[in-house]
Amino acid sequence: MVPLSWYLAVAAVLFVLGLFGVLSRRNAVAILMGVELMLNAVNINLLAFWRYTQPENVAGLVFAVIVLTVAAAEAAVGLALFIALYRLRESVNVDEIQLLKG
């Protein structure tokens, strides 16, 4: 069987990739995609820990399902905001939104 540490390593790499995407992308939708990668890393972590340390206790499984659900709600609200942004400015580039600063 694949050892637990491999899963954790994949999750860590995925998390860092997502964070890199968040920090380097300028398009709001691409940033959201980076966030989703980070959340997937969290889910891999949760499920790997659950499967390897205590498959008889569902807490980890439930946690992963809830993370999925809430991430969907978050994406819905985020995309709605991006649509409003696009209607106002014809762009979803975060470099261009700078009315508020100082």
Binding site: A41, A48, F49, T53, N57, F63
Partner: peptide, 14 residues
Amino acid sequence: LYGFSLLYGLTGTT
């Protein structure tokens, strides 16, 4: 959440 997942893995409980 990543921190929470590590905490869960470490202790095996939420």
